[in-house]
């Protein structure tokens, strides 16, 4: 087996979590970090980037997630013009914040870490909000808060349900207190949506930490998580350094959160679309796609008689 690797001079199986969507020749094969299976890249993409052998859920870019969930061609993206400012004139060891943003934009092909818009799932309208971990670790800054608030407000105006797909490495440190305040801004938007009795479905995906976990993502009406996703408030390294304790097995995994009563259920990626469709139908009872319930029909006959 080792000789086989040697013969293939360029053959470099990489941890699939590190790669982008684009396929380059060296990336034809991906090694599953969980079961070590070598998977043909195209096959992995066909299986929604879930390991065909062990079911490990690889990370997904935001646009890939949107493609998997929505009716083809139905996603209408909102507020693509919003860009971060530099209110702190922030400079760190890697230079000024605006330069960092620009480099990240070139590298990722995204202008910010959050994508918002409206789509259809099997014909049903849904406001969709998806985080992209590749963009500065999906750190929540002012653009994130503004895009999310606008999306949720529009959902309220039109009477649409909202689904958020949440990954985050924490706060956008470069935006200082503005970043922290986005926790308040996003929660308040959902508070208003709740007053209109419109549901918020939240899917937590790997990894989801910090201010996103401590704000709108965990106070949704339905909180779901992908199998194996790491979810928490404080990061594992921070906890280890501060407590000097060994972390329990499976600490902060989706399964751990389920056991501790923190999420409603775990959903496999291939089942998500069907599950979301079911949820929309359960909550959007007056929706355009909902056949009239039997009880209501009987009641209206009674009234007529």
């Amino acid at each position: 087996m080792r000789n086989f690797f040697k013969r293939q001079g360029k053959f470099q199986p990489r941890n699939g979590d590190d790669r982008n969507d684009q396929i380059i020749p060296e990336d034809l094969w991906v090694k599953c970090p969980k079961c070590s299976e070598l998977i043909y890249s195209k096959e992995l993409d066909r299986s929604a980037r879930v390991c065909p052998k062990c079911g490990h859920h690889f990370r997904l870019r935001a646009r890939h997630r949107i493609r998997l969930l929505v009716d083809p061609g139905s996603f209408e993206e909102w507020d693509t013009g919003l860009r971060p400012e530099d209110p702190l004139a922030f400079v760190d060891g890697q230079g000024p914040y605006p330069d960092k943003v620009e480099r990240t934009q070139l590298k990722t092909g995204e202008v910010e870490a959050l994508i918002t818009g409206v789509c259809r799932v099997e014909g049903r309208p849904l406001v969709l909000v998806v985080a992209d971990f590749d963009f500065l670790g999906a750190s929540m800054g002012s653009v994130w808060g503004e895009k999310l608030a606008r999306a949720v407000e529009r959902a309220g105006e039109h009477g649409w349900p909202v689904m958020t797909v949440n990954a985050s490495g924490g706060a956008r440190m470069h935006e200082g207190l503005f970043s922290l305040m986005q926790m308040a801004k996003t929660v308040s938007a959902f508070h208003r949506l709740g007053e209109r009795r419109l549901p918020h479905f939240s899917l937590l995906v790997d990894p989801c930490y910090g201010g996103v976990t401590a704000s709108y993502a965990t106070v949704a009406d339905i909180v779901m998580a992908e199998p194996g996703a790491l979810i928490g408030f404080a990061g594992q390294r921070v906890i280890e350094q501060i407590t000097r304790q060994k972390l329990p097995d499976g600490f902060q995994t989706a399964e751990f959160l389920l056991e501790h009563g923190m999420i409603d259920f775990i959903i496999e990626r291939q089942q998500l679309r069907q599950q979301v469709r079911t949820l929309i139908d359960l909550y959007m009872r007056d929706g355009e796609n909902e056949p009239a319930p039997v009880v209501a029909t009987a009641a209206s006959i009674d009234v007529d008689a």
Binding site: M183, S188, T213, A214, I231, F233, T243, F251
Partner: peptide
Amino acid sequence: PGISSEERGQGTAIAESLMTMF
């Protein structure tokens, strides 16, 4: 930032506080 706080849902508890105050 402790293990038991994570077990009892530190993030969720903070989020619920924000929601309560709004």
